[in-house]
Design a protein around this nucleic acid. Structure first.
Lengths: 316, 316
DNA sequence: ATTTCGCCACAGTTTTTGTCTATGGCTCCA
DNA sequence: TGGAGCCATAGACAAAAACTGTGGCGAAAT
């Protein structure tokens, strides 16, 4: 049963596990040695679990003790976060979540994020900051943003990155294009005509990766038009400046269509990004929530064709 | 502070949040209504947090209350799991973890898994069951396996799937092959010569996916040799039966080399798989551990080239 | 309009639990 | 052999939590 367990006791256990010395552990939590000792002892008796081996040369954590001590540590930390968040919510002191986003991410994602946030923390504001990925990351560094929803790749060594969406990249063309009657396109037959790209400045690492990808299929990149927004891209396609690669989920202007690309496995990946400072109280909760949500969504749909096209062979 | 909080109180809060009725909540946890009422009330006072709004027409969870109630629920569940696991470990009653694995997964992964398991649960045995993926999954269904380490894809709607590794697929050839001096190969120039595959029977969904992948690059699959183990594959390559796709990390027999493939983004993905029954006490812990580990490893290395080759464009 | 019922809060009392001081036993080391 | 360090235990005291009983309040029923 969960009774006989107190958060106070968790602190005792944590301190004892850290110091491996009941006397010093007791000092650390500001009680008499006998209290800590007897509390732990009584607990061990009631749950019939030996946490510490009392040896001649001191204490030692048992295997069971290690498991419980780990639990204690995690739980105490989570409670601190929970209390801080609950207090902040109640007092309406949750600072607005300064959320950066690129105009190239799917609007649905932002919407869903907002709904979930509102559901978890009613009345707490989100401050939206549009900005290209590079700017968003700089603002994360400068702590003028708390988090951002950005296209990947983002350097995961510098930021906490949690992928939240993935959808295939498709070729965007006029509906009267010569290729419009084809169900799918080979990258080699369209690569030369893909001339409309996002301005490299907006997300240099993504552009670099793009160049790499084209090189991998043996085709140099023909950047003829650099756009700064998705609608500019669509406008350029309509005006016959060329074709473009866009997220399959992008809403299309009339007169435009998209076609999947065979022979490559290119996807638009979107991630929730924040720096490690965890400045904003809500961040740990969002993180846990997204982890769950993203793993759930993977769980509920069949392995996305675009995601694991790969194992096969050799990995039987 | 974490004092003033008891697991008993968490149960009160959970019950009250569920029933929205202190009287029935008190019954549910077997105490007098006044006890539950005053405990919650006192807690609200000491942490200065209103969990429940007492309205004319009954109780209502406040936003802060919802946050705390969620915490209560999670924590109680985790404690149950922790206690069960700690008891089982102490009594040496942890049943051996019946772990299925395909012979095509990297041996390093199994080793790492074993080390971590031993570290967490000293003295607890792992029962290894070699078997092709299909057999492993059947055994999971039949509950004769607790979990398995398998190549993806695995139907994530039927099993809990946690990816634990990813590495590029490469072409395995003799070191005296005509293509041996090339740093990388285009899939189109070698596809026809890749004739050695894993026996489709061993992992039908992976094979299907493989056929699809070849179709996507516009090349029919030439299955001339079906192997049931990685060493058979290497032997076939050595005997000039053709080329094969293998995990980049596979230890190579002498006389064999591997070359990366340009133009495609094929990887060998490996996952930890278990059914939703959670029959084995250790599974929740393994799951949490792997989640952390896998996200840490993603965090600590740069975005793997093979993983997000894709974003670019449109997702600026 | 009045009664009844369900629900929550409060008061007073008893029981349980936790903490403290003091002490004793044990081991290690000088 | 004596002191220091550490843990366990005992007994006194304090704090916390439980229980019983009661009262208030609104909603539904008579």
């Amino acid at each position: 049963m969960s009774d006989s367990l107190t958060f106070r006791l968790l602190r005792y256990i944590k301190a004892a596990a850290e110091t491996l010395n009941f006397t010093r552990a007791a000092e650390q939590v500001f009680v008499a040695q006998s209290s800590l000792s007897s509390q732990i002892g009584k607990f061990e008796d009631t749950v019939e679990l030996l946490l510490f081996a009392r040896l001649q040369n001191g204490l030692k954590l048992t295997s069971a003790g290690r498991i419980v001590a780990t639990f204690a540590e995690n739980t105490l930390k989570e409670w601190d976060q929970t209390l801080a968040m609950a207090l902040a919510v109640q007092r309406n002191e949750v600072p607005p979540l300064r959320l950066g986003f690129s105009s190239f991410i799917n609007a649905k994602l932002l919407e869903r994020f907002r709904e979930n946030y509102e559901g978890m923390f009613p009345g707490c504001a989100i401050q939206l900051w549009s900005g290209d990925p590079l700017l968003c990351l700089q603002r994360l560094d400068a702590r003028t943003l708390d988090c951002a929803i950005l296209p990947l790749p983002v350097d995961a060594t510098l930021y906490n990155v949690q992928q939240i969406a993935q959808s295939p990249l498709v070729v965007c063309m006029r509906s009267d294009d010569v290729l419009a009657d084809r169900a799918q396109l080979d990258i080699h037959e369209v690569a030369e005509r893909i001339t409309i790209f996002r301005d490299p400045e907006l997300h240099p690492s993504a552009h670099t990766r793009l160049v790499e990808m084209f090189r991998e299929v043996g085709i140099p990149i023909h950047l003829a038009c650099a756009a700064r927004t998705p609608s500019e891209i669509q406008w350029m396609v309509k005006e016959r400046y060329g074709l473009a690669l866009i997220d399959q989920l992008t809403p299309l202007d009339p007169g435009l269509i998209t076609r999947p690309i065979a022979g490559v496995n290119w996807t638009a990946d979107t991630a929730f990004v924040h720096s490690s400072h965890m400045d904003h109280v809500a961040i740990p909760f969002i993180e846990r929530f997204l982890q769950q949500t993203w793993s759930d969504s993977r769980r509920s749909k069949r392995p996305p064709k675009a995601r694991h096209p790969e194992q096969l062979e050799l990995l039987g």
